[in-house]
Write a protein that binds this DNA or RNA. Sequence first.
DNA 1: GCAATATATTTAACATGTTAATGATTGCGA
DNA 2: TCGCAATCATTAACATGTTAAATATATTGC
Lengths: 142, 142
Amino acid sequence: MKQLPSTQRSLPIALIRARENVMTPIRQMLSESGLTEQQWRVLRVLDEHGALEPSQLAKHAALLLPSQTRIVQSMAQKGLVERREHRNDRRRTVIKITDSGQAIINDNAAKAAEIAAQIRDKLGPRRFETLLDILDDLRDLE
Amino acid sequence: MKQLPSTQRSLPIALIRARENVMTPIRQMLSESGLTEQQWRVLRVLDEHGALEPSQLAKHAALLLPSQTRIVQSMAQKGLVERREHRNDRRRTVIKITDSGQAIINDNAAKAAEIAAQIRDKLGPRRFETLLDILDDLRDLE
DNA sequence: GCAATATATTTAACATGTTAATGATTGCGA
DNA sequence: TCGCAATCATTAACATGTTAAATATATTGC
């Protein structure tokens, strides 16, 4: 019979810790703008892809739809994003970034890029790419 | 000036997705016992290390103390763990697993080990170990 | 053209994550 | 020994994660 792996070498726990470590400097940066990491992801994705429907935004930002609904609502209240109706299909909505949201991206882009570069340097570019590749291989587990 | 990486190759997002993928089959298993993944981690750690003080348990289970306080409270109500006072230092408490909690570990150990083995096989043992090693290298970022 | 089904999103309810404030107890120094 | 700082844990408040149910609109089949 197979044995349970030690929690010291448990992949779920290792992933949680890694995320915690990676996000700490990013959270520090974002706290000055009053943003959560999720709100930052929403801005990043909208900046990168332009206006998106909720389900597409959720996929790109790695958010579940119920969370995203709340996040976008609060961001709309703060004026960071806005919602428009889809022309032909009234079930759908399109979410786009506002000038105010874009300004936050612009203000933090350099710092965020620096943090990302630090992580990359810490691992070494080769290991960094290997990490992303292996993480990607974890899709479609059954 | 450094450029922001594409969200497609963003490490935080990749870590979130990876965890989501890894946890899906585990959550399926646990739902039959009515446990969350965090409650399962608490049982796993207590099974592995024996009775622990809150801060030690939190470290091993990758939980923040406020979350853990609530989780242990609800688990104590269900009779899965119990709390004992420390002899000399009343600030401290020791948390231990109950027979009922141990039974859940025993009932699910084989299945959990199988899931872990599947993930390992999917990546290949070598890549799996590499992944854990690289994730571990993300400690102490700055 | 209408009912049944499918799709997209939101709401609801509860658990956890996160940061800050509060509480409780010990240990130390005047 | 009194009081104060330090440590550990809990509580508080709000944001997000997670699953299930509800809602709204489109599409399909008859």
